[in-house]
Structures are given as C-alpha cells and as structure tokens.
Amino acid sequence: MDKIIQIEDLYFSYEQQWVLQEVNLEIERGEFAAFIGPNGSGKSTLFKLILGFLKPQRGRITIFDQPAEKFSARGRVGYISQNVRDFNHSFPATAGEIVGANLYQEMGFVKLLNSALKGRIKRALKLVDMEDFKNEPIGKLSGGQKQRVFIARTLVTEPELILLDEPLVGLDQEAQKDFFQVINQLHRELGITIIMISHDLHVISNQVSRIVCFQRGKIYPHCASEFDYNAYLQQVQKEDRLFIPSHEH
C-alpha cells in the first residue's frame, strides 16, 4: 500500500511540556482514520505538524514522500480547521465565492477566476450536493449546509488527502448524519484519504476504518474498539504516575 503520511519517533513541545512524544504513525492511501482523545491530548497539534505549520523538536514527518515542513503542493491536501466557522456570518459572500477563494494559488498573477476554475467551483459544490446554493449568501445557510460549503472549498483544489479538525462541533444529529454521508461518499467514490479529529468515540466508531487514540501526547495507532480505547487511557494514566517530564530540544 501507498503510505501518504509517515511519522517516525516524533516529539513536540510548545514550552516546558511535551505535547506529543514518541509518536509513530503511518497513514495509507484510501484510509478513513479518526484521531480520538480528550482536549489537549495533541490531536490538533499533530495536524499542524503534518501540514508543516509547526516543526517537531525531534523525529520526522513525511507527507507524499516530502518532509512536511517543505511540502509545497498545498492543493493535494485539504484542511478544514476547528475555527472554520469563526467568521462574520453576515459577510456578504455567496457559497460559490467562498469556495472560489481557495483557488487563489491557481489563479495566476492577476488573481481572477477563468472559466475552467469556475467549472471547478461548480463541480466541488455538486460533490457535496450544494450546486443549487452557489449564489446564496453564506450567512443564510444552516450549520450543516455551511459545513458542506467548507468541504466544497477544500474539494475545489482536488485534494488526495483531507484533514478535518473537529468537524462535528456545533452540528446537530441530523447535520452530523448528513456530514458523514458526504464524507463517506468522498472517501468511497473519489478515493480521498480522510483523517478527522473528534473527541466523541461513539459518534465516529461506526463510520471510520481506523481509530488512532490520543492521550496526554501519546498515541495508540490501532484502537479497534471502545474497550481498546478505555484500556489505552488507563495504561497511559498508569504510566503517567511513573513518568517524569523531561524537556529536550
């Protein structure tokens, strides 16, 4: 299988405390993985490291066979951050305009949309079943519909990998169901590799093909079930009692 992310012996700290330690993980093409763990367990930090926004103190991350910090083909990776919905909801932009913004890198020096790029906006919205809403103001859409637009914004660059940071926060049950329908379709039909962060094991366990557990900066790459997850949490807690924090750069 084609490994698109390889993480070897990774350590990362913000200040005095290790946020991630001894992380080894491989993600293969076509996987639908979930990063599960409580707040502050290092999930979002690992996303930022994978995307090259942060640099590890120790260890190595490669993404599409390139070191993460030097990875330049941004369009191959889609990222929907935790703060994606932190915007002015009365901003006067349509769903189509929001999706088109992500084509910035492909617009050339004079940053205008040509007909080929406009076609891609239409296709991206169609993939999430939002083509009828292309000209609707973003603020008029429901939470679930906004989520679809942000997924379309990621799809417009035709990514092979999508990273979703807490995409279910703020969505009701119906919108969550709706979200998984879209994501599963992208995963199955387009073969896009997907990694999503969640702290709710129950919601995602039936949806994803693999669960990676996080607890206090350590990971367990193959959490098959809730039993595994709980056992892992307990194990880390036990280790923590013996663990003396160290800080090496």
């Binding site: 995307l51 926004f53 941004r74 990222y79 951050s81 703060n83 994606v84 932190d86 915007f87 002015n88 901003f91 932009a93 305009e97 929001i98 088109g100 913004a101 992500n102 910035y104 890198q105 617009m107 020096f109 004079v110 940053k111 205008l112 949309l113």
Partner: peptide, 23 residues
Amino acid sequence: VGIFYNGFFFVAFNEEEAKLSGV
C-alpha cells in the same frame, strides 16, 4: 484592487483561513 481582488476578499473573509490556503 482589481489585481488583488480575490486575495483581499479571502483575507477580509477569514484571515486565518486565507493564510492556511497560501495567501
């Protein structure tokens, strides 16, 4: 403004997201 229209638009909409998209 004509040349940078789409970039200015993205920055005005969400500065953080624009940064992530390479603007």
